[in-house]
Write a protein that binds this DNA or RNA. Structure first.
Length: 473
RNA sequence: GCUCCCUUCGUCUAGAGGCCCAGGACAUAGCCCUCUCAAGGCUGUAACACGGGUUCGAAUCCCGUAGGGAGCGCCA
């Protein structure tokens, strides 16, 4: 039972709690995916919470982008923005009243105290500590102010943050879902701010409190939070709230070993989407990045959830490898249904192409396409002017001879399909196999490789096949 | 500086003392199939960061070293 709402949870929940300060990064997308899969696998709820307590850095356009990216990936949340269930609101900026109650509770216990130190004072103190070779921790200036002193300063309107009084000499232990037993000493943790001077809740506080309030029981999050976990456990303990089980997953690194960022090329979901990557490809790749599975096929989200195993989450940071993403992209593209393929390639197609031809064209070139831009060349070849031959192509065509092409062109003029055209050329020349097909392919497409010819010819403009063959007759 | 996390083929990883002169997937090389490319089939190349222990036996346990990462914020 949750004390905030007095409500019981039949099911557990996982959550993804992004902060709308930028675009959805691949690393965060993976975190979202893993939490989603963990929930789906256990028939639990997947909660989406927007952590926008920092008004100066949070922007609504980023929230819009975040929701859009998550939708695109197919990670539908069971509770969150647009899906209220009584435990919300799911924007932290709208939860101030809930936080206020808890601040009072902690103040009553003496678990927190107002801190009047200014940002510059703290900066100076940190600097001095570092210079002296010590850990930069809050020096405790305001920790033991008398009650009178606090009243006086507060009364005088002096701005104050609220700090959590970290108990001395305590071991904080928990079992990480990924890393196993963890043990920290409270003496290594300085008193930290849980409420900013402007009254807003700080991350450690709102994040931990909301997990409890929203019935979150398992959290997979970035490894950068591992050493922050003791702080959150302390808060939850002081409030008598249950802590979720945390699992800390590694960061995603670029090929050079540095944390993945824009300078490695694309790092945000938006960029991959705009380059034409399929969501199934991104999701399947992410599923295997820092997670191992015996499932080697391109899987749908539910199948991925069934195959997801938190036991097989890796501890070491994983390198992003676009070549591997490409493999999944090929799988995803190759299994696209004809209409879906047409929609995906639509921006590359010539204007005014009838839907039937467009669909047939896309189906024909799909095996040779990884990203939409790869279709461009085939659009030009099929719908553009007859390709000019040079080099190997010109040689092969000359070798095949004019009789070869005269027969082929006649078959084309009679309305023959590719099989008929090839048969006519074979009959006229006695050629077969590569000897037969290579000259035809060059004459028709200008290239020595490409999609199967038969379906390609079916979408060529009327008469075009004959014209291209007759050039060499 | 202090605390914490991490280190197996190019990449993602399996591996929780003998089943491992380390297995799989993808990538890569060769062959087969094939009108080319792709797909598919077969075969191959390729890794336990380093150094000490413990043990009959260590990729697995312990201790160091090196390298990488994170945290120590009125950012999340």
């Amino acid at each position: 039972m949750d004390r905030t709402t007095g409500r019981t949870f039949a099911r557990g929940a996982t959550r993804f709690a992004p902060s709308p300060t930028g675009e959805l990064h691949l690393g965060n997308a993976r975190t979202a995916l893993f939490n989603f899969l963990l929930a789906r696998r256990g028939a639990e709820r997947f909660v989406l919470r927007i952590e926008d307590t920092d008004a100066s850095r949070s922007r609504s356009e980023h929230t819009v982008g975040l929701l859009h990216d998550l939708h695109w990936l197919g990670l539908q949340w069971d509770a969150g923005p647009g899906r209220e269930d009584g435990l919300g609101p799911y924007y932290q900026s709208q939860r101030a009243a809930l936080y206020a109650q808890r601040f009072v509770e902690l103040e009553r216990q003496g678990a927190v105290y107002p801190c009047f130190c200014s940002a510059v004072e703290l900066e100076v103190a940190r600097h001095a500590q570092r210079a002296a070779g010590r850990a930069p921790r809050y020096p405790g200036t305001c920790r033991d102010l008398s009650a009178d002193e606090r009243r006086r300063r507060l009364g005088a309107g002096q701005p104050a943050t609220l700090r959590f009084r970290v108990p001395a000499g305590q071991h904080i232990e928990f079992t990480d879902l990924v890393h196993g037993a963890q043990r920290f000493l409270s003496d290594d943790i300085g008193d930290f701010v849980i409420r900013r001077a402007d009254g807003s809740a700080a991350f450690f506080f709102s994040n931990a409190l909301d997990d409890a309030a929203m019935g979150v029981t398992q959290v997979l999050r970035g490894e950068d939070h591992l050493t922050n976990t003791p702080r959150q456990l302390l808060i939850l303990e002081a409030l008598g709230l249950p802590a979720p089980r945390y699992g800390h997953i590694s960061l995603i690194l670029g090929p050079d070993g540095a944390p993945l960022s824009k300078r490695h090329g694309a790092a945000s979901v938006r960029e991959f989407r705009e380059r034409g990557y399929r969501p199934e490809a991104v999701v399947n790749y992410l599923f295997r990045l820092g997670h191992s599975s015996s499932a080697h096929d391109l899987l749908g989200l539910q199948a991925l959830a069934d195959a997801f195993d938190p036991q097989h989450l890796g501890r070491a940071p994983a390198h992003f490898d676009e070549q591997q993403l490409t493999v999944w992209q090929k799988h995803a593209v190759h299994r696209l249904a004809p209409e879906a393929a047409r929609d995906w390639l639509a921006p590359q197609l010539p204007n005014g192409l009838d839907p039937h031809t467009a669909t047939a064209f896309c189906a024909a070139v799909l095996p040779n396409v990884v990203l939409p831009e790869d279709a461009r060349a085939w659009v030009d070849i099929v719908f553009g002017p007859a390709p000019v031959l040079a080099g190997e192509g010109a040689d092969l065509v000359r070798e095949a001879g004019s009789e070869f092409f005269a027969a082929a062109a006649r078959a084309a003029a009679d309305g023959g399909d590719f099989a008929v055209i090839a048969a006519a050329a074979r009959l006229a020349s006695g050629r077969k196999g590569a000897q037969l097909f290579r000259p035809l392919r060059f004459a028709l497409t200008g290239l020595g490789h490409g999609p199967e010819l038969a379906p390609l010819l079916r979408v060529m403009p009327p008469g075009e096949t004959e014209r291209r063959l007759a050039r060499f007759a």
